[in-house]
Design a protein around this nucleic acid. Structure first.
Lengths: 223, 223
DNA sequence: GTCTATAATAAGATAGAC
DNA sequence: GTCTATCTTATTATAGAC
């Protein structure tokens, strides 16, 4: 098909010996995003390296070149998605608000983030199916996450001192209460929605639940 | 190894031509339980039909003989696990208790059931990763599930009439509040536990959370 | 109804040219 | 750094004897 000499074709535009359109940074990012999409849709076992390659502007060979294996690629996807949530969590500026309002803002943020990042939720589900063995391999994820608890903790303290919250609340438990509701609503939307005949994506239902988790948390911790 | 004639061995006990030890009912149940174990551990895509066969007293051929395909076998596993929770839910006898106590019993049951049935929780996670497309195929699961909401609904009504609960609570939302906390605690124990350094299987933590979900629900609906 | 052996295919990973 | 072609293994599913 391709003639080995090509004597009549025009010369290559670049004379500085650059193979074609090399952009390692972009190629790597491109693969990572394609992998997230595939893992999120198919799970770890269900994901196909070939399928990831097809979602990419590059080839399967590059996946192994940059990431070594399917598992290592998967871990990098996890780190990226956890990084996204933790970064945005820090822009909340809870200290500037009265305790009760700060709790409300945190609950609403938690709700919104899960609602908008189905990818993150699905990835965490997949990871738990695999007994969390890949998050355990990445200390970076653990380190990023302690900040939320610190922010929540100091807010609680402020509220107790101000007399609006009752003392004795465990920070981790409160965080779990918020996370579980916001997470479940997204993670289990298919089974829950089908079985109980409710459309969890509906805007009215969504606003109701957003309000609800705030009320639930506040009624629980109020003095 | 086995001699084809066996002239000195004792005669077969059954003379009525029964191949070996045929017990279709038991074989089917055996396969189903083995499949649950495999699906629960590996997910749908990760589960191997060979692995299921190895967990069985019978062979891989029988899996296809009884269930047709890996997918159909998976659906039967789902139906079985959903059936288990819905059956036990009906033995709660909430009508015999004062409204507030009935809510407490339901919350505790929900907590205990999820805590004791990790298999169920993991299977539901897997199913949601697959967009719930298999529960949708089984109307039996949907039909079984409406009973919980009915029980919760009449309990709420009683409480409102008695003046202990405030009106306007959505039944489905309350059910989701209970389910989400109880479910998440089990489904996400690996990531949550590792990231926030808490052992969710610890007996003290468990009792604290069991108490907590009751308090959360009641403080939210109390008049 | 049950078993062993195998067909047909698909998947993760790599070789080697450019 | 990038590409195509391919190796190796494992997987779903079935054939055919008993």
């Amino acid at each position: 098909m391709t003639d080995p000499v090509a004597p009549l074709s025009p010369p290559e535009p670049s004379a500085t010996r650059q193979p074609r359109k090399n952009n390692p940074e972009k190629t790597r990012e491109d693969i990572l995003q394609a992998a997230i999409n595939e893992f999120v849709q198919q799970g770890l076992a269900g994901a196909r390296v070939d399928a990831i390659a097809e979602r990419t502007a590059t080839s399967k060979r590059m996946i192994y070149y940059y990431f070594g294996s399917k598992e290592q690629l998967y871990v990098e996807c996890l780190v990226k998605l956890y990084g996204d949530i933790r970064k945005t969590e820090q822009s909340l500026d809870l200290e500037s608000l009265p305790a009760e309002q700060a709790i409300r803002r945190l609950a609403e943020f938690t709700f919104d983030h899960h609602d908008r990042n189905v990818d993150f939720v699905r990835m965490v589900c997949t990871e738990n199916i695999h007994y969390g063995e890949y998050v355990k391999k990445s200390p970076a994820i653990r380190e990023m996450s302690s900040l939320v608890l610190q922010a929540l903790s100091s807010t609680l303290e402020r509220g107790v001192k101000a007399g609006v919250f009752r003392p004795g609340i465990e920070v981790i438990d409160l965080h779990m209460l918020m996370s579980s509701f916001c997470f479940y609503r997204v993670s289990n939307r298919h089974t829950f929605g089908d079985i109980f005949q409710i459309d969890l994506a509906d805007e009215q239902v969504k606003q109701r639940h957003r309000q609800m988790i705030c009320d639930v948390v506040l009624s629980y911790i109020r003095a």
